[in-house]
Design a binder for these strands. Structure first.
Lengths: 128, 128
DNA sequence: GGTGCCGGTTTCCTACAAGTTACCAAGTGA
DNA sequence: TCACTTGGTAACTTGTAGGAAACCGGCACC
């Protein structure tokens, strides 16, 4: 992979690697994916993204908001309404994530098949 | 984000989410990125991907090999040579990862700026 | 015989990630 | 008044990823 001038993603203290590290988080991927087409409320997001706890979702959203990827909007409704949506920056990232997601869905069978044949070859000894 | 028929990445036990979880790993991203244009030896990889320990690199490579993304080739040279390279499947993923990487490099400044303004607004109380 | 390199594996230990539970305010309805 | 909602935060506990370091075989050099 070629480097852009001035950056080296592989060096430990490269700021771009910080971004990459942040992105390398399943919840981030799933949350941004969920926000792709519409703004979503906190508890709705919690229900949609199966398996995430409030704490982690809250932390994830705060990180994303800090990174300028997600916008948080509070409405003074009956029970308070908090809506999360993607910013322009977040939407540009979401496009990349979508291609990721599509890769996963398209190639899941190939990966699963590779795992099975790998396990068949090496797994018998390692199974013990 | 729209769903492919039959899959739902958001449900807890979706196989595609397993793939996504695996991919959501900074070392995986960096290793595949490094293997993008050439086969690389173990210790070379360790030096290039700054900050990874042998153990974690070894585990990461094993996982990637099991997933059919990386190929491991051993040469019976003087000190044994082990070369890792991408499979066709791995290369198709690498293209996606590259766009990720490029996004990070292009938008690092926007993210950093967002972080600064966020911290300026909220950080004073939270800094303590 | 001792030291070094390559490519790992194993063990140990610790620090942080993350789950669970409890709690909060504010408002509404029974 | 109590219960229930939303959208969290805080405290406590557990799990586990990951770092450090030792060890391994095989060979080469001295």
């Amino acid at each position: 992979m070629r480097n852009s001038p001035g950056y080296d993603v592989y060096s430990r203290h490269c700021p771009a690697r910080l971004v990459l590290d942040r992105l390398a988080d399943k919840w981030v991927l799933l949350v941004i994916g969920r926000l792709w087409d519409q703004a979503v409320r906190f508890n709705q997001l919690r229900r949609d993204v199966d398996g995430v706890s409030q704490k982690v979702l809250s932390q994830t959203l705060k990180k994303l908001e800090r990174d300028g990827l997600v916008e948080r909007r509070v409405y003074a409704t009956v029970p308070v309404t908090v809506e999360y949506s993607l910013t322009a920056l977040g939407r540009s990232l979401a496009e990349t994530i979508e291609s990721f997601s599509h890769w996963a869905e398209r190639n899941i069978n190939a990966v699963l098949a590779a795992q099975h044949s790998y396990d068949a070859a090496n797994g018998e000894a390692a199974a013990e």
